[in-house]
Amino acid sequence: MASSIDISIEKGKLVIVLGKNGIGKSTLLRTIAKVQEPLNGTIFIKNKSLETYKHQELATCLSMVLTERLPESQLTVFELVAFGRQPYTNWIDKLSAVDLEKITWAIDETEINHLKNKRFYELSDGQLQRVLIARALAQDTEIIILDEPTAHLDLHHTIKIFSLLKNLVAKTSKTIIMSSHEVNLSIKFADEIILFTDLKICNGSPLELIKKNAFDNLFPKEIVNFNRNLQQFIINKK
């Protein structure tokens, strides 16, 4: 597990957390989202300590897309996206005109309009991931946290998700923090990378990190190595 982290993240960036399995990426994201208590230290969101946020209050400035499977239910895609409005709705969860507008916007942005009335268990992994992103968008928060949103997706759908997120950051100036194993794609898409290696944690724009040779220690060198000219990892030739 990675030990000490002292990082501040600017508004309106696509931040990607990279690192090998089990090094603590999900722990970091879950801690920021207050799903899990901090092991140590303090997190500040908008200069306010996370501890002092009530869940209700946090729900209006931070939304999540998690890796865990949804329990099997008969929810439709529309209902699922509409859940994003729960922090704003009244006690009986009535959707106002504003709520409907935000839901429609989220559905349009993620291009899932044709799936609106389907049940979520009928969707492919790629479609479901877009629906979950729409749900987070409908929550209308400045920060969106995604834990490995492209796990289980093929290359085509992975790139689709990456460019969707990149566009959203550009369009809405939301801050998106996600973890990923797609190192090569992350270097292309990220505004900022938080890199977990065995030795230390470093952060910065992809180019800064490449200059600092930070990627060299990401994986053991026997199988893959970072190629600075191509700006990506290349499998070693025998």
Binding site: A33, K34, V35, K54, H55, Q56, E57, L58, A59, T60, L62, S63, M64, L66, E68, L70, P71, L80, F83, G84, Q86, P87, Q139
Partner: peptide, 10 residues
Amino acid sequence: LGENYAKSLG
């Protein structure tokens, strides 16, 4: 949606 999502919805 599961407990974690419920929590994140406030």
